[in-house]
Design a protein around this nucleic acid. Structure first.
Lengths: 340, 340
DNA sequence: CTGAAAGCGCTTACAG
DNA sequence: CTGAAAGCGCTTACAG
């Protein structure tokens, strides 16, 4: 070293006001020249903070998740935090392993994105005694903060949009894993039907897997009905993608024969043909909000427990009035004219 | 604690063969009951390994990048490594900050994904004295290992496929940022033209930005040519997405009027209408290979310096024979007729 | 304004 | 098979 002690160097590098200006500058210069870089591990051992947050995701390759993580990372970086990422693949053993790993690394906080966190998982994480933020997740509020899209409202908007176009046979293609998001979206759909005086038909509620693959079987079931739907509200854009393909495979046109709505507004949804009507979730912003919640808690402040983010209905080409209007008696002719 | 010393506990928890079986079990039981979890920071201070790898990405929201990271994380997890992620956004200051952060955290290795690592950046990282793996990146070989898709070969395959369909006016929609991937793909395109005895027309080489947005201007330029192309080979699927939209905006059909090929085989590409002909890059597998390269080096073995991964041409509906056979003399008229 | 001391929670030779 | 000791690289009261 260069003339001074350990402690002085440490203080100088932190720009401590206790130290002589000149000394500080000299030390910083020498440190830079020597390529000195302090050890986060040693520091965190004494400060008891790791300046690290752990992010648990089902799979980072999911575009919704990737968008959220992008926002988390951005905000974390601005505040000097590192982000540790771990896929859980929704497998219980991996979830446990991830929790363990984050605990060893003494993360200062945890964000869990759109997994279906089970009754055991959040308590497992909460043992760690660090703040937890759940993003679009089930929310047992005593353990964790949450950031959620306003599912019910957005879903009401979607369903009203379809009803407004003249649809009355509207199907809901849900997710089969019991995500809270699915429950809430379904509930908004029901509310809108009811408000419009439409009867809910259980045969019109079907389930996919939240991915494109899972939609085909559900769509086949819908199209096999005696009176198939003229519009389908899909749990998310990925399901909509699968639905669109399945509908085309059945020889039907979108939106002429069937209108389709998604949820998420993935980047690619605007590029589909026809462009997808959907609900925009501001993914990076939601990630940022989750990270900001943690930062607020780290700073000793108190943070909102339930942040609701409004979703925005984006109307594009995948929705249109139905070919066949409901109930009125000689409507076929009328409609036909409008279409040509 | 429970009857024994510090050191014994440490050994027992590592299943050291030195320790009495019974003692080991007793200690492990007590540790489990007490919810003991060792500190990675303290451990890494003495072992001088962090069991952490740093991953630098341009932006995790890019679907190619997310696919790669998914493979990295999977493999890292299997071997007890954590992954730290950092967006560079291709901004030089952020790249420097990221390098600094990884150095403080004493990552055991670094993976850089598909950024255009500049002449300064790799040396900056290499100062850290840890192994570096570049994925689909420029490769100054004395500093880093690399995993790359076999761009030239794949590009030859694509261009031959188009020539085989009867195309002779084939455009290349590249990336304007000087990625090595772009250079290599362009070179495969040239080679295939030459091998087929076709003359390269500079007016048919245009540049986008690797994203959908950047394609529109390039496509307009191509379609404004006196003799526009009948097929376009796009640098990646995102560009192809933008190209498809721009071509439709010009009132032309795909593949009838123009064939389109991409590169990547993003998840969504199979769901486009028409499904996109493209080159499959096995993204998670490439991530896995990058991580395995690091693991091999950590274990003291030597690892391949230049891993080439073959890309697979996936022919789908976006390519077809051209409407106008080449060379025939009054082609404009022919074209008109075919269009109506 | 600077130094000496203690300690964060581990691992690992070195003895016994 | 187990213990005592040293040390990894920092920060932070406590003196001066």
């Amino acid at each position: 070293m260069a003339g001074v002690t350990h402690s002085t160097v440490s203080r100088a590098l932190h720009n401590s006001p206790l130290i002589n200006r000149e000394t500080v500058e000299r030390i910083q210069r020498i440190a830079a020249e020597a390529g000195y870089c302090s050890s986060a591990a040693a520091r965190s051992l004494v400060t008891r903070r790791s300046d690290t947050v752990g992010v648990v995701v089902t799979n980072i390759a999911d575009p919704f998740v990737a968008g959220v993580v992008s926002g988390i990372e951005e905000t974390a970086d601005q505040h000097g935090f590192s982000v540790l990422i771990a896929n859980s693949n929704a497998e219980p053993e991996r979830e446990v392993r991830v929790a363990r790993k984050f605990e060893e690394r003494r993360v200062d906080g945890i964000i869990v994105t759109s997994s279906r966190v089970g009754a055991q998982y959040v308590p497992l994480l909460s043992q760690m005694q660090v703040p937890i933020v759940l993003l679009n997740n089930q929310h047992p509020s005593q353990f964790a903060h949450s950031v959620m899209i306003a599912n019910t409202q957005a879903s009401l908007d979607v369903t009203r949009h379809l009803i407004g176009l003249g649809h009355s046979r509207i199907a809901y293609l849900g997710d089969r894993y019991g995500h809270q998001s699915d429950t809430e979206r379904f509930s908004g759909y029901l509310q809108a039907l009811e408000a419009a005086g439409l009867h809910f038909e259980p045969e019109l509620a079907v389930h996919g897997d939240g991915k494109a693959e899972g939609a085909a079987a559900a769509i086949s079931a819908l199209l096999a009905l005696a009176d198939p739907p003229t519009a389908i509200f899909c749990y998310n854009d990925m399901s909509a993608l699968g639905a669109i393909r399945a509908i085309r495979d059945h020889g039907l046109r979108i939106p002429t024969d069937i209108s389709i709505v998604g949820f998420d507004d993935l980047y690619i949804s605007q590029y589909l043909d026809p462009p997808l009507t959907t609900v925009r979730q501001p993914m990076p912003q939601m990630g940022r909000m989750a990270m900001e919640t943690l930062l607020r808690i780290f700073a000793g402040g108190d943070a909102e427990y339930d942040l609701k983010v409004p979703g925005e209905l984006i109307v594009r080409g995948s929705t249109a009035p139905p070919l066949i209007p409901r109930l009125t008696s000689p409507p076929k002719l009328l409609r036909k004219e409008n279409h040509e």
